[in-house]
């Protein structure tokens, strides 16, 4: 699949934003946010909303007819993209009331704050889940058609959010072993899940050129695609980075996305300066950006069978 930059930016940034928002809200409402001042809380929530909004804005860039984007809420009953749009939109009023309450009332969580915060938190997680389901629901792409896809989206969003959370906390001079441990745990879990995903997609399954053409009892090979130059299909689905590039990018995913930030967090836990959490965030963002590129780049669409692939 062609990796569209706007979609990569959208899923990484808004995933991180929703992760950050839900973790901050959860910690705050349950009274576990360590000694948070109002400014810090507002900064965390503001950053989360900024990331989410930037991501959603980027997502509209890949629409070829954005003037009809408002119609995306029309098919909630069947379409995961529609569900994502509805979740993402209904998140805003609750999130904004929550933020406004924190600004007005302060860090003491009242009943209204718990109510709107709780709803916003659920909608944030639901949005990330629906994003994953957009891809997981496509039977045409076996690398995506698995429950591991929404699991990856959720865990990676939470892990990035947690990394951002500890970095901002450190920026305010805070130092909390518990928070860093939480971020470390989530990042580790997300990394293991991604590793499982990479193992899972090695298993070849699904249609072949034989079932695609109906000739299941003999070898089939492409003689001619019927066109001399590219088509919409080859441009959209024909991208193939090659095994070598996939291997190298995977090293980057694990190196920048998980190993380096985990080491930096370990250093902080071992008594190092909390400022190391900023480069940890940068590294995790870069690594998970690569992860998202690869998520698209190594997915092979069934229509490529008609263009000569034997298996996807």
């Amino acid at each position: 699949m062609h990796p569209a930059l706007s979609v990569i930016i959208f899923t990484v940034l808004s995933g991180a934003g929703y992760g950050l928002f839900s973790l901050v809200t959860l910690l705050h409402l349950s009274g576990r946010y360590p000694a948070s001042g109002q400014t810090e809380l507002v900064t965390q929530l503001g950053l989360a909303l900024a990331l989410i909004t930037l991501g959603l804005f980027s997502s509209t860039l890949h629409l070829h007819n954005p003037k009809n984007a408002w119609r995306a809420v029309m098919r909630v009953r069947t379409s995961w993209l529609s569900r994502e749009a509805v979740c993402a939109l209904s998140f805003y009023p609750f999130a904004l009331i929550y933020l406004w309450q924190v600004l007005q009332v302060g860090v003491e969580a009242g009943p209204l704050m718990v109510l709107v915060g709780g709803i916003a938190l659920s909608l944030a997680l639901l949005t990330v889940f629906t994003t994953g389901m957009i891809y997981a629901s496509l039977k045409t792409i076996r690398q995506w058609h698995t429950a591991l896809t929404p699991a990856n989206y959720l865990l990676l969003g939470l892990a990035l959010g947690a990394t951002a959370l500890v970095a901002v906390h450190a920026g305010f001079g805070g130092r909390s072993e518990g928070l860093v441990l939480l971020a470390l745990g989530l990042l580790l879990l997300a990394g293991v899940m991604k590793g499982l995903y990479y193992l899972w997609i090695r298993e070849v399954s699904g249609p072949s050129l034989n079932t695609a053409t109906g000739f299941t009892q003999a070898r089939v090979r492409l003689l001619d695609q019927g066109h001399t130059a590219g088509t919409f299909l080859t441009r959209e689905f024909g991208f193939d980075p090659g095994a070598g590039r996939i291997r190298r990018v995977r090293l980057g995913v694990f190196g920048f996305g998980f190993v380096l930030p985990l080491l930096l967090m370990g250093m902080v836990l071992g008594g190092g300066s909390s400022l190391w959490l900023a480069p940890a965030l940068m590294s995790a963002l870069a690594g998970i950006g690569l992860e998202r590129w690869l998520f698209f780049a190594e997915a092979r669409h069934g229509v490529m069978l008609y263009h000569g692939l034997q298996r996807t």
């Binding site: 007819n65 496509l138 039977k139």
Partner: peptide, 13 residues
């Protein structure tokens, strides 16, 4: 709205 998702969902191109 030109989101391409339907083309992604179609196995027959």
């Amino acid at each position: 709205m030109g989101c391409n998702l339907c083309a992604w969902a179609c196995p027959y191109g």
